[in-house]
Nucleic acid binder design. Structure first.
Lengths: 261, 261
DNA sequence: AACCCCGGTCGACAATGTCGAACACTGTCG
DNA sequence: CGACAGTGTTCGACATTGTCGACCGGGGTT
């Protein structure tokens, strides 16, 4: 195989199947065999064989009329099964609700997946309504409080993010390597991080790292809401909210077995 | 392989990988390589190669201390990506909320996956609190209103369910082939179905089929709640609620392109 | 120290999946 | 209306690919 990895054994048919699934997930909507084969630089026949198998196991479905393929229902159950097993999530739940209640804001718990922030738990803002559950969503790491905290403790991910031109969502989004690195070191010094209108105007967030068994950062917990509620008059995150978030992060870390936190 | 070969070509390494994922999903908790290999009757080395690849693509994770494997985070995002594309879900959302509001009960939309009911959408009971979101869960088909409706229009699935000793959850659960077939024909005659304390005591549900493009049943929508609210004094589902459910099902079917409904 | 389990590795063999051409079909263009 | 450019799909020959079973290195328990 022309792949760059002479790793100790990789089942490339499985790797290709995974690539197809990722492709289908990224390009929202249905894809044809030709598009799939072209995007992944595979012979049409090969791609078809893989897709047929994926269809047999329920990982992809085919729209009978157009013949195009999309993700299958079996993946949904696998995904939620992952949530049931995920220790970060299960330990967080008990602490996320109180944090949302005390702060009055929406709370999310995320972990790093492939350089982006995967939301594994989400508690709605207590009073409000009409919020969309974004468990399972991928958030940009450089423009969210959760993401920046996670990057601060994962140099590899931080580097690869800075390699690839972070997208500017607002004027305040950190896009240069210099500003990002400075923000990350500041987060490491403080033990928490914030984001103010870097993702969407009028919104701000506060997050703190969650540590697992060996003291390693395995996730982050944070809240987000309107700037005027999250920040004080000086444009800084309200200290009380910061304390709430840090307390919650510490509590989850303790539950996960992180010794000295 | 041990399976028969009626199909034109199956990439068995992918099929095996899928089997491993399903196995990990079903047996909640972590599994070792040995257990996996034994359960699927594979050589240890082979199982290891597949699992290693699945780990590289993020579909499984390994607990560093115990060495055991569990589902990976990448599946969560794939699963929710499926929800974004799923037409049944996207069309249902607009009608599920009103149904929940009018009826005052929780609403769920499900489809058949591998003989069970996969929940693709879930609207909480309006007033109440403390409900767990079970999007992505698998419900027993023979003991839920959604399930029985789906079985009524899928003879294949109905047969395989009756083959395999349905589990009795309460005394009223339908477990024999005779009672089940009679219930299914009744559902077909009426165009809707109900379930009263067949899954959990004190709970009842009403459901109606959702039809897709060719008039084929592609899912079901239903509500569930306490018996005394869902049923009238005679122990029958309240006609008004039934009408609500049927109207919602018709509306979704129309959105999906089912002509004469 | 022997044992038995674990997960992980390696290499030889051949069964396996890959590949590209050809098929059947659709809609569109000239 | 015929040719074309698409589509998804099939098929069979080839050799690349993944499989397999023995072997390695550790941790527990006996």
């Amino acid at each position: 195989m022309a792949s760059i990895r002479p790793m100790p054994g990789q089942v490339q048919s499985i790797a290709r199947a995974a690539a197809i699934l990722r492709l289908l997930a990224s390009s929202s909507g249905r894809l044809g065999i030709g598009e799939i084969a072209r995007s992944l630089d595979l012979p049409k026949g090969t791609a078809h064989g893989i897709v047929r198998t994926l269809q047999d196991v329920g990982f992809v479905e085919q729209d009978k009329t157009s013949g195009k393929y999309q993700l299958g229902a079996a993946l949904l159950h696998l995904g939620t099964s992952y949530l049931d097993v995920n220790e970060l999530r299960s330990r967080s739940i008990n602490w996320a609700d109180p944090l949302a209640a005390r702060s009055g804001e929406a709370v999310r718990i995320g972990t790093l997946l492939d350089g982006k922030v995967l939301v594994v738990h989400h508690v709605f803002r207590p009073d409000d309504t009409l919020q969309t559950l974004d468990v399972g969503s991928l958030l940009p790491p450089h423009a969210t409080a959760l993401g920046k905290v996670l990057l601060a403790y994962d140099v590899g991910a931080a580097n690869s993010v800075m390699q690839g031109e972070p997208e500017p969502y607002t004027r305040r989004t950190l896009v240069t390597a210099r500003t990002l690195t400075r923000a990350l070191t500041e987060i490491r010094d403080n033990g928490w991080g914030a984001e103010i209108e870097e993702m969407t105007l009028g919104e701000a967030g506060i997050a703190a790292p969650i540590r697992g068994y060996g003291g390693l950062v395995v996730g982050a917990i944070g809240l987000s809401g309107p700037v005027d509620r999250v920040c004080d008059g000086h444009g800084h995150p309200r200290p009380t909210l910061v304390a709430y978030v840090r307390d919650a992060a510490r509590a989850v870390s303790r539950d996960l077995g992180a010794a000295r936190w």
